[in-house]
Design a protein around this nucleic acid. Sequence first.
DNA 1: CGATCTTGCATTATCGATAATTCATAGGTT
DNA 2: AACCTATGAATTATCGATAATGCAAGATCG
Lengths: 232, 232
Amino acid sequence: MAVESFSQSTVTELVPRQSSRRSHALFVALQKEIVLGQLVPEQALTELDLAQRFQCSQGTVREALMQLSEEGLVKRLPNRGTHVAPCHADDARALLELRRDVECRHLDRVVSRADAALKGDLHALLNAMRNAARDGDEYLLSVHDRAFHTRLFETADLPLVTPILTRCLIHNHRYKILNSQPNRALEETAERHVPILHALEARDVEALRGLLSHHIATIVDFGPDLTSVDGA
Amino acid sequence: MAVESFSQSTVTELVPRQSSRRSHALFVALQKEIVLGQLVPEQALTELDLAQRFQCSQGTVREALMQLSEEGLVKRLPNRGTHVAPCHADDARALLELRRDVECRHLDRVVSRADAALKGDLHALLNAMRNAARDGDEYLLSVHDRAFHTRLFETADLPLVTPILTRCLIHNHRYKILNSQPNRALEETAERHVPILHALEARDVEALRGLLSHHIATIVDFGPDLTSVDGA
DNA sequence: CGATCTTGCATTATCGATAATTCATAGGTT
DNA sequence: AACCTATGAATTATCGATAATGCAAGATCG
């Protein structure tokens, strides 16, 4: 129990303290609604409505919407409003392939920079995933899943690339959640990260690449095979 | 002359009418200063200073800064301010590889959707590049260069991927401009797009892929070779 | 009857002012 | 001397109100 609460607090602190910002709270709430499909693709989001609903000013809503736009979850047209982004299979597949490339290409940098802090954080996130899976909370599981892969990639120290991975991750999960029956095998999803962690601890770049590539290729079933390298 | 002014207006209309928004004007201005290095990496940008400098309110500046953050040209830390993004070789190389993957992977979709409007727009943009090169305006050349590649990729109809390409493009150009003597061979840079255009008009996907791949790999000289596929 | 031109409404864009946060510095305590 | 603690200046975050824009419905004209 002590271990559990400790790892929980560790995970909490992995998120930079932003909860005090209203715009960020709004961003998080809307992000969840979009990923879960409670806000459907192409739905219009009017700023004053959201302001009233979340008891804040229009400017604060605007900021949250711009943050969502940064992840591609909404599209903003000047003077014309904000709409929830579409979620088509073609985009989803392209983003999944892109994610595989990004995550797998720089694993040598990850392994060479891996340290105890990384190991600790990833174990904490794995634990958080297990807890979310046990509680049947698919969204919370996906949050920690994204944090796991982000934390891993941040170790490559390519700060200009990380936001691109963030974008891929959220859309991967959105497509998966929107196109599958809820609550299938959550616990299995969490456990799928264990071999990745082991390969990392063994500092085996090639094994890690193979595992991650497979891990990503099997997130969503895209017809023939995502594993074949068809790009260039 | 008539042709020139026509293509100019065509190019102008390729940009959605946003010039009436102060925040967008600010965004464009700051984007230029960052890409040209007039604002140096890690430099702090305080909102009220910019508001005074551009004669607008703090809120408008915030919006412009968030748009810049969307492209990764600045990094915003909650309650701590905004700084110009770093510009390291490792990131630049990773983003160039990523750009090559993105642009080359979906050329089949581009070719299958290519129409007269695309051809017209790309010719107009090529012309705009030539004009900018003739005038020795390296930045304007880069603007049209990005528009050219963006317009080409938009034809693939993967709206969730396009912003990622946008991000790669701006950082490619920023790194190139920040790490080279100004005004080398601008006209050559414009002409380098001609064979791409021809392959597109011939609807030859493989030729197009080869040309684009080489085009991108030779933008910046990154040591050994960017052409080898080293990612999975 | 169709096309163009107003007019009003819904919504976004901008502003100026106030509140909240951070950071550095100075002062006090053990 | 090391360690808190409090104060204040600088800056960001939020608010409420006003201006500007776009859209649709109705009016006017050929």
